[in-house]
Structures are given as C-alpha cells and as structure tokens.
Amino acid sequence: MAKMRRLPSLHALKVFEAAARHLSFTRAASELCVTQGAVSQQVKLLEDQTGVLLFKRSGRGLLLTDAGQELARGVGDALAGLARCLERVSRQDLAGPLAVTTMPSFAAKVLVPRLGSFIEAYPQIELRIHTSSEVVDLRSSGIDVAIRHGAGHYPGLHVEHLFREEIFPVCSPAVAARLNHPADLANVPLIRDQDVEWAPWLAMAGCPGITPHGPAFQDTHLALQAAIDGQGVTLGRTVVAAADLAAGRLVRPFPQGVSAPIGYWFVCLPERAGHPRIAAFRAWIDHLLKRIA
C-alpha cells in the first residue's frame, strides 16, 4: 500500500479557506476570532509547506493565484465533506426509538402540544409516549425514560430533578367573575384532583374552614378540563396549567400560590443515562420546562 503523503496542518488549511473565501485576512481573522497577524502567519506556513504562492496583492486588494484558486476549491470541498461526515456520524446513535412514560396529565398538557419542536430538532428519533399513573419498571418494560411526579425516591435508577411547581386556584373567566375573595370559594364547587390537596392553599389563604365539595378526578388534565368548562374551581400547577392560562381558557382568580410538596423528575437506568437519544430528550425537556416556567 502506498504511503500517504504528509498533509499540511488542518488549522492552516482552515485559515487559508476563510482567507480565500473573503479575499481578506482581516475578515478571515474576524470570522475565526484570531488576529490578522495569525492569519498571515498560517497562510505563510501553508505556502512554505506547499512551495507555491497562494495570494498576490493588487491595487484592488488581495487576489488568489492560480494555485491558490485550485487549492481553495479543493480545501472548501474537503472541509464541507468533512462537516457532512461528522454530522452523519454524530447523529447515527440518535436514529431509532425512544420510549417515554409519564402521567396522562403531563403528556396531554405539556408534551403533546409541544412535540413539534422535538420532532423538528431530532427527526431521526422515533418518540413513543406511554401514559400511566403507575410507576413503570424501567428494567422489564422496555421503557427508556420516565418523567415522574413525586418526591424523587427511585432507588437503583438515575434521577434528576426537573421542576418544582407552585399550586394555585384556576377556573374559567366566567366563574372568576363571581369570586372577589378566597372566602367566596365556599359558594362554588371545588374540583378535586387526587394529586393535589386543597387544605394547604385554603389554610394559607385564611379559609381553613372551607371543605372542598365538587367532583373528584383521578387525572389532573380532566380536573383542568372541568374547570375550563365552568364546572367550578380546581387547583392548577405551574407546568400543567401553563398552556390553558396562556390561552385564556383558565385564569387565576387569586394571586396567592403555595409551593408543591413534590416535583417532576427525569428517571432512567443508570447505565443508559449517557445514551445519545436519552441525552437529547433530557436536554429538550429541560429547555421546555424552563420556557414554561
């Protein structure tokens, strides 16, 4: 096998390509965040290594020699090909399925309305959403990631805290028009959600004597829908109520809120935490929750 010819410095080739594209050492230096002198030095190094003059100066500025034009085309094509190759290699491990389990309310109110941005960013990941109010065994279920709402105690798993919410009453604008003071909640149905207790908020608002009386739902998104439909007042949480509040389907009749005793957690198997698909979803969900908050 023939011995490969020794190539010039890749850094020098990158500097030359920028200078050739701009026909200016100054603009190349600005693009590469180096000094003009550094660009000139790298071009001189490349000329010494190749043994040919690459640039010539004219009254109109910097011009490429014939050899410089040929090298600029070759280097430009080679760098573009290298960039495409690196992109393909970096995305190979992203291609494939990613199974995520979460609560029905989080899927319905947070994930599904915003999945478009994930699909646009990672079209090669086949996202599969599994909803359950029960804790799913990640080792036996084939599920890659769980978004869980709880205290964060998941032994034997990789656990990262995502978000702790605020809890506050929400209702339709029509119902809110009848509420002037927290004590007025005694006169409307208080929709119950099994994940949220009314007692802490009522005590904070100075109405500990009010007993919630209204329909009870197992899933948060059903309680929110009942409130949207004017069936009463329920307790909203920062993340799951965000879209309905932003759209005006729900309003906060009172400004007071209390911190939720539990939060959201990103959970996966420890040996899978660094997998590219899981890491991509982790970064996306973190960005998503920061925007909502």
Rank of each mutant, 00 (worst) to 15 (best):
A2F: 11
R5C: 06
R5G: 12
L7R: 15
S9G: 12
A12Y: 03
A12C: 05
V15L: 15
V15S: 08
A19P: 09
R21H: 15
H22L: 11
S24E: 10
F25E: 11
R27W: 01
E31G: 07
Q42R: 15
Q42S: 14
L45R: 15
V52K: 11
L53P: 00
L53H: 03
L54M: 11
K56C: 07
S58V: 07
S58T: 15
G59D: 05
A67T: 05
Q69R: 15
L71K: 06
G74C: 04
G76N: 13
A78S: 14
A78I: 07
A80K: 14
R84A: 15
R88T: 10
V89G: 04
S90C: 05
Q92V: 10
G96R: 03
G96I: 03
G96S: 01
P104H: 10
A108Y: 01
K109C: 13
V110C: 12
L111N: 06
L111D: 07
P113A: 08
R114C: 05
S117W: 01
I119A: 09
Y122F: 13
Q124G: 02
Q124V: 04
I125P: 01
E126C: 00
L127F: 03
I129C: 04
I129K: 01
H130W: 01
H130P: 00
H130A: 07
H130K: 06
T131C: 06
S133F: 04
S133G: 14
E134A: 15
V136Y: 01
D137A: 08
S141T: 06
G142E: 02
A146L: 03
A146F: 00
I147L: 14
H149D: 06
H149Q: 08
G150L: 11
H153G: 09
V159M: 05
V159G: 06
E160Y: 03
F163Y: 15
E165F: 03
E166F: 08
V170F: 02
A174I: 00
A176Q: 03
R178Q: 07
L179C: 04
N180M: 02
H181G: 00
P182I: 06
A186F: 02
P189Q: 05
P189I: 04
P189L: 04
I191V: 12
R192V: 11
R192K: 13
D193I: 05
Q194W: 07
E197A: 15
P200V: 13
A203F: 07
P208W: 09
G214K: 08
F217R: 12
T220N: 12
L222T: 13
A223M: 12
Q225S: 09
A227G: 06
A227D: 06
Q231T: 03
V233W: 00
T234E: 02
R237I: 11
V240Y: 01
V240A: 04
D244S: 15
A246Y: 02
R249Y: 02
V251D: 08
R252H: 09
R252V: 11
R252M: 14
P253V: 11
A260K: 12
A260E: 14
A260M: 13
P261T: 13
I262Y: 14
I262E: 12
F266M: 05
V267D: 02
V267G: 08
P276N: 04
A279K: 09
A279E: 09
L288D: 08
L288S: 07
R291C: 09
R291P: 00
